[in-house]
Amino acid sequence: MNWRRNVSVCLLFICVSAFVASKDGLFNIPLNWPKPNYNFSKNPLTKDKIDLGRALFYDPILSQNNTISCSSCHSQFTSFAHVDHALSHGIYDRIGTRNAPVLINLAWNKTFMWDGAINHLDMQALAPISHPDEMGESIEHVIYKLNQSKIYHHLFFKAFGDSIASGEHLLKAISQFMLTLVSANSKYDSIKQKKSVLTLKENNGYQLFKKNCSSCHTEPLFTNQKFENNGLPVDLELKDFGRMKVTQNPIDSLKFKVPTLRNIEFSYPYMHDGRFKNLNAVLDHYVRGIVKSKTLALQLEQPIVLSANEKVDLISFLLTLSDKKFLFNPEFGYPKNLLISLPKD
């Protein structure tokens, strides 16, 4: 009898937690989007956990010398990329090897990083925290520092009912904040909801996009999440072969994750090493810069042909993917009000 009750309690719990993702409107799946990849039942969103994650995201306590926070290289107004930095700088101005990607719609991501080295959103933060050129810190010492802080005693208790920080709770909280970073309010989205229309130029650009770009930058997320070699010549200084480092398989040489194009207007410079400063340079690459090699994406074997006018039109379509409501949403910014209300350390 007992086990039956246990099983039914478990089933009830599973059913309830399946809906928790959208409870209180903390996370909503935009219209006609696929189901998210993140398993919310293992980390159901709550306001207090999101608040804790947001406080951690903006806090340089995560770095060795308390100077670099997640937001140092992921600023909201650039869709959480690093504006104007081809490669980001971490503690002591050390320079990394890759361009900081945008942090949007991460609930749909299957892998993380340009080479997919990280398999789960929860584990993502460990990489920048411990990388010597980024935060140069250890997760063990971050937890030690957080446990010295009255503010975090309070925030961890509110979030998890336990004032002592742990690696699991820290990572889950940061995930929760990042999961809320959903960008789906661009002009493109309002057109899909029939609330707006494309201009002639934008529409021409959209047709060009569908013909030349969308097999990799698939709607509505504007990425197919695959790893592809898009024909960039190897940077002889960085010698970055991308995905191959993770799989150790030569068929993955020079493949990098196809990035989303949402908010592309603000996330310059472009490519895994930030080599292109603007969208014109990106299109020039696709039209006349492709380097042929064994692992080149099949879609790029035939040259892409775009006239000067077509490039302008294509870019005007790409600008319809900008979501200014997201970029200036105060819920995603520095948690000033939250921190003011707390006891000081």
């Binding site: 398993n39 293992k42 080295a117 990280i118 929860d122 584990m123 460990l126 699991e168 990572l171 889950k172």
Partner: peptide, 19 residues
Amino acid sequence: GAIGGDLDPTKGMYWTWQS
């Protein structure tokens, strides 16, 4: 994803640069 107890990533048994 993140798990606690003996599997907590603070136990020094989790790779950070590659999950």
